[in-house]
């Protein structure tokens, strides 16, 4: 099969960018979307042209490295999967596909389709953990955890930090990402000591990074490859409010 592409090209953060047309032919429908882009890049490189810069690593939907806006939707229209998990059999011969980066003020563009998501790391550094030094843990089975709660914690912990939620949100809010992390620890006995300060500090950092507020559009949930529920955002709000009151 063959497809036509309109890809966002931008040489650097301050350079002007535009959509550029390409055509890729002879695609095997079993190929992944990124393998199709590899193919495009190989032809560009062989012509001495700069390949399209995009990121990926695991190519199986777990590292959170890949992330493209495909035909206007973060991680494409299929839903419940990352960009690297998309297979070409989903498209029809002759389709025109637009490919753009994850755009947000807090994700400054580096080149073409590559953006800087370090803001997520800085938010995590403010409490996305249980403060326990190596060596100071008790026996793991001393504290039973209800299976349902462990599962709920796992549901929230499944976030891969890809940033699609931010790219999809009209306000570029990071609430789903932050809400998922805060929620994970509300289900577990570990880390209760820091529960309040975690919510306060992570939310503060999120605001500081320039992410917008959540106004309940739920676009984030729709694109999240790990199907993280927006119930996590409500839980984050509750945690935050509770912590504010507890402090004052």
């Amino acid at each position: 099969m063959n497809v036509n592409l309109k890809i966002w090209r931008q040489a650097g953060p301050d350079a002007p960018g535009k959509l550029v047309d390409y055509r890729v032919e002879d695609i095997d429908p079993s190929q992944s979307f990124l393998e199709m882009l590899d193919k495009l890049n190989e032809t560009l490189v062989k012509k001495g042209q700069e390949p399209v810069a995009f990121e990926s690593d695991c190519r199986e939907g777990i590292c959170g490295n890949c992330g493209l806006v495909i035909n206007g939707i973060a991680h494409g229209s299929k839903g419940g999967c990352t960009t690297c998990e998309i297979r070409m059999r989903q498209y029809n011969d002759g389709d025109t596909i637009t490919v753009e980066p994850f755009r947000a003020k807090a994700f400054p563009l580096i080149k073409d389709l590559v953006v800087n998501r370090s803001a997520f790391d800085r938010i995590m550094s403010k409490g996305g953990y249980v403060a326990v030094n190596a060596g100071s843990a008790q026996d793991a089975n001393l504290q039973p955890i209800h299976k349902d709660k462990a599962e709920a914690a796992m549901d929230a912990a499944a976030c891969i930090g890809c940033g699609a939620c931010v790219a999809a949100c009209p306000n570029a809010s990071a609430s789903l990402f932050v809400g998922a992390k805060i929620s994970q620890f509300t289900w577990l006995p570990q880390g209760q000591v820091e529960r309040g300060s975690r919510a306060l500090k992570m939310v503060k950092q999120m605001d500081h990074e320039g992410f917008g507020d959540c106004s309940n559009h739920a676009e984030c949930e729709a694109v999240c490859p790990k199907e993280i529920s927006i119930a996590n955002i409500s839980r984050m709000r509750r945690e935050f409010t509770k912590a504010l009151f507890a402090r004052s």
């Binding site: 249980v130 060596g135 008790q138 793991a140 289900w187």
Partner: peptide, 9 residues
């Protein structure tokens, strides 16, 4: 023990 203490589900 360490990982459970960190909240690994």
């Amino acid at each position: 023990d360490q990982c459970v203490a960190q909240g690994v589900p």
